[in-house]
Amino acid sequence: MSAPLHPRLDPACFGEPAARDERFTVVDIWHDCVNLPDGHPEKAQEFFHRQMNEEAAVLENAARSLWEFPDADWDLRMWLARQCADEARHTENYRRLFVSRGGRLGQYPVLGFQYRILGKVHTLIGRLAVQNRTFEADGLDAVTHAITEAREAGDDELAAVYDAQQADEIVHIRFANEWIKREAARNPRALIAMGQALALAARGFQQTFDREGSRVSKYGVAEDLRTQAGFSPEEIQDFVVITEHRRAIARQDAG
């Protein structure tokens, strides 16, 4: 039996959800989350809770790829296994932060989009392109911004968590970039599957966040870190152009 899906979402873009225990309320669209304004006293706590769930989703996606692609190169499987451990540790980091600062697991709704979108991507190159090369790389930009914010707020504990996590994410993006480049050289037709996966994920992401949620695009591109993560200068320049376009729209919407 299929899990219910918000009527606004296209079932072609969303697979089955991952399991969450009874403490959690899982929602399908960003609008149904608790989206607090900047400066709200619970803003940071809600973010830790949301991010804990997102890290768990990345863990689940890496684990699923490890299970579903048993014939992949052993070296790549080792990296996926490593990513599982890293994402599990990140999940635990946020869980500890959230609980130690007075939170209760399940206190806020969480999104299930990452796992559900990847469930409709049936190629390994597509999964890595969407999860590692897109979602994780966008997270790299966000965490760079977050480290600065935490340091400015004097929250050294949080800055240390972000700093360690950022180093891990670079590794995850880099192994995916390196494998994708090798795979594309070996089998150029794989790029078609990659393009299809990216297009599907973009549709699913847009439906999840809608214009309102997408407006929260306030970070620039972390160019140095993306270089370390294996993106070429041309790719990084493309990201800069796209990101600046998004930020301009966000500023326009904000009036």
Binding site: F24, C84, E87, A88
Partner: peptide, 20 residues
């Protein structure tokens, strides 16, 4: 790896994920 997405309890998911 198969169990991680299908195990509901977050704390168990984390330990299994690390031991992969």
């Amino acid at each position: 790896a198969r169990w991680v997405p299908t195990t509901p309890e977050l704390e168990a998911k984390i330990v299994l994920g690390r031991h992969i």
